[in-house]
Design a protein around this nucleic acid. Sequence first.
DNA 1: TTGTACGCGTTATCAT
DNA 2: ATGATAACGCGTACAA
Lengths: 344, 344
Amino acid sequence: MRARIEDVAQAAGVSMTTVSRVFNKEPNVREKTRLKVEAAAQALDYRPNPSARSLAGNRSYLISLVYDDPAAASSYIMEIIVGMLVACERQRYSAMLRPLEYSNADHVRAVEESIAQYRPDGLILVPPFADDLKLLRRLDALGVRYATISAKAKLGHARIGTILDERKAAAEMIAHAVELGHRRIAHIAGPPLHGGRAWRLAGYRDGLRRAGIAYDAKLVVDGGFTFDDGVAGTRQLLDLKHPPTAIFAANDDSACGVMHEAFERGLRVPQDVSVFGFDDTPASRQIWPSLTTVRQPCREMGRIAAEQLLAAIRDPQAGALVRVPYELMIRQSGGPAPAAAKRR
Amino acid sequence: MRARIEDVAQAAGVSMTTVSRVFNKEPNVREKTRLKVEAAAQALDYRPNPSARSLAGNRSYLISLVYDDPAAASSYIMEIIVGMLVACERQRYSAMLRPLEYSNADHVRAVEESIAQYRPDGLILVPPFADDLKLLRRLDALGVRYATISAKAKLGHARIGTILDERKAAAEMIAHAVELGHRRIAHIAGPPLHGGRAWRLAGYRDGLRRAGIAYDAKLVVDGGFTFDDGVAGTRQLLDLKHPPTAIFAANDDSACGVMHEAFERGLRVPQDVSVFGFDDTPASRQIWPSLTTVRQPCREMGRIAAEQLLAAIRDPQAGALVRVPYELMIRQSGGPAPAAAKRR
DNA sequence: TTGTACGCGTTATCAT
DNA sequence: ATGATAACGCGTACAA
C-alpha cells in the first residue's frame, strides 16, 4: 500500500500536521524540521492523496476551461490547454475541459451544472463565453472565481486573465497592406459576439484612417471565424464592381477560405489579391502561399490566465489582467498591389 | 451549504447506504424506494461529492490521456479528447490530459510519475506511447489498466482500445492513384516508432503489387509526420532523375509539406504531381487544392477507447479491441497522371 | 514552532 | 431489501 501522511510523520518523528505544513509550504516550520520531513517523504515516495486533500480542505484543486464546442478541435484552444496544464502542474492543480455548445440557449445553465458536479475552484473562460455578460454576472453572484482570455466585457470585482491589443494589431496589419501599395482593402469581420470582431474591425478602420483611405462600407462584410465564412465573404467581395486588392480576414481559418475562393476563381495570391489573417495557426504556415498573419501567444495566454486565476483563488486580492504581446508574421500571402488597381 | 447524502437520506426516510445504492445504480433497491430517493435528491439538488466518493471508494473516477507533447496541438489529439470527454461524462468520470515529451529518455518514468500523483483509474495511450513495449510492460507490471489507440503492439492481458486497418486504407489510396493512371508513385514514410509507418508502408507496397507495379526503393523515403518531413522528402523525390508523378505522404501534415515544396518548384498540383495524405485533418479541406486523403474517425476512436477502458475498469473481463472504419476522401489534389510520365 | 483531535462526505462491511 | 458504522487520508481549529 501507498505511504500516507501518517507514515511520513512517523518516519520523520513529527506530527501529521507538520508534514502537512511542509507540503503546503506553510510558514512556521523550522528549516531543520522541513528537511527531515522532506527526506522521509522522499524515502517513502509519499504523494498526498488528492481526494483526501480536497475533502478535508474543502477545495477541489481543480480549474475548468470553458470553451465553445464547435471550436473544440481548434489549435487555438489546444495551445491554451497546454499552457494551462503547465501552470496547474506547477501548483499541484488539475485542469478540466468543458467544451459546451454556446449556441444552446441554456449554456449558462450548462456552466452552472458543470460547476455543481465537479466543483472547480475556478474557471477559465474564452470567447464567446468570456464576453457573455449574463454568464459573468451569474458567476459573480455565485461567487465563482474566473479568469478570462481576450474578453471585451469589463465585469467582476477583480477582472483577471489575459488580453491582447487586437485593435492595434489589426491596425498594424492594415498599415502593412498600405505599405505594399494597397488602397482597396477589404475586411471579413468576425462573429458578432466575439470581442475580437469589434477590436479587429476597429483596428481595420484605424489603419485606413491613418493611411488617409476613406472607409467604404461595401468592403466590409459580415463573417465569422470559419473557413466557410471566408469563402462566403470573398464571394461577395470579388463580385463587387471594384473588387479589393487585399482582404483582411478576421482570423486564419477564414483567411484560408478567402484563399480557397480566390483560387477557385483562377486568381493568384498574392499577385492578384493579397490575403491577411489573424491568429497564426499551424495551417497558416502550411498553406501555399503561407499566410501573413498576427501571432497570438496562445500557450502563454493559457498559462498566464491559469496563473492569475490560481493566484486569485489563493488570495482574493491577487490576480490581474495581463496584457500579452502580439507579433506580425509577414509571410507570402501579402504582395504588392496590382498595378491596374493602383491606377483606378 | 450544499446537500449531502445524509440530507437526502433523511428527506427520503431511508439510510445513507440506500441513497448511495441508488446513485450507483446498484441492484437490490425496490423501485418504490428508488423513486423516493430520486425525488428527494432532485428536490435538494443533491450532487455526490467527487472527492468523498474517490476517497471512500478508493478510486479516482479519472482517466488520463497520454500523448506526445510536440503533437499537443494536432487536431488528431483534439478530436480524440472530445470523444473521450463524451464517454467520461456519460459515466460520471473525469478526463485528464498528459502531454509528455516522448523523446525524453525517461518518458516511462514521466508516465509513472503522473500515475503516482493523480492516480487515474486508467490510461488511454496513443502512438508513439501506444507502441512502446517498455511502457506497456511497466504498466502491466504495475497493474494499471490502459486502452490503446492504433497500437501495433500486442501486449497486455486484455488488449483493449481501437484499431483501424491502415494497411488496407493505404492500399486503397494507391489503387486510387493507379486508377488515375499513375505508375511512378512515391511514398514518404512515417516516423520509425509509429505503427502507422509500418502499416501505411505495407499498404503502399500491397497497392503497387496488386497493380503489377514493381517496387522501387528510390521512390520511398524516410520521413515523419510533420510538415517539414514532407518538404524534405519531396526535395529528395523531385530531385530524382525520374521523379514520381504522385506522392503518397504518411499523413496530412506531411502532405501539406509535399504540396508546399511542389509549389516552390513551380509545379502544379495535381496537373504535374498528385498528392495524397492520411488522417483528414481540417487543414486537408482548407488547403488548395484540397487534399485527397484517408479519414480516420478520431472522435469516435477517442470515445470508444474510453468506453472500453471504463468497461475494463468496472469489470476486468470486459473491454475489447474495436475496429473502426476508415473512409477515402477523394478531393482535388489527385489528378490524372501527366501524359509525359505515362510514356516513359 | 509543534502537536492533538475532530470533521470533511462518501463507500464498504457486516448485520438484520 | 435495507441499515448502522467504521474506514478512507488529509486539513485545520485549538491547545501547548
